[in-house]
Design a protein around this nucleic acid. Structure first.
Length: 118
DNA sequence: TTAGTGACAGGCA
DNA sequence: CTGCCTGCCACTA
């Protein structure tokens, strides 16, 4: 028997779950950092979601552009990815104002599409 | 190990 | 409407 010491079953970290959530965001929708954090298990870990995007979006293919802040706007600054995100969103049919404002009432992904809701 | 980080959120003026 | 402040969390160096 190999002295396998401790085989710790590492649960996915919060960050890993965030990635999973990001992959679950449907095309043509957006969500907020808080929403992602909430679906990942901690609505207060919005800051952590930020970190995930910072760290993972550079190495992994995540729909990071579908994540905006609670105000419904792109948090990135012009010249720091703002344009790219706005472009990607508009490409998915999501109108983006010049200020980066998106209509959350229409495009916010509530995580649970309700076909009967109007 | 400790300290620092950060593309937030919410409250208040 | 905007701006400033605080709380908040889990990861990274």
């Amino acid at each position: 028997m190999p002295a396998a010491g401790k085989i710790k079953v590492m649960e996915p970290t919060f960050t890993d779950r965030v990635k999973q959530v990001l992959k679950s965001i449907p095309y043509g929708k957006v969500t907020t950092y808080g929403q992602v954090a909430m679906r990942a298990g901690n609505y207060r870990a919005a800051r952590q979601v930020v970190r995930v995007l910072h760290t993972s979006s550079k190495k992994e293919k995540l729909p990071w552009h579908r994540v905006i802040n609670r105000q419904g706007k792109i948090s990135l600054k012009p010249g720091a990815g703002f344009e790219e995100q706005a472009r990607l969103l508009s490409k998915e049919g999501i109108p983006v104002s010049e200020t980066g404002q998106v209509d959350l009432d229409t495009f916010l992904w509530c995580g649970d599409p309700d076909p009967f809701a109007e």
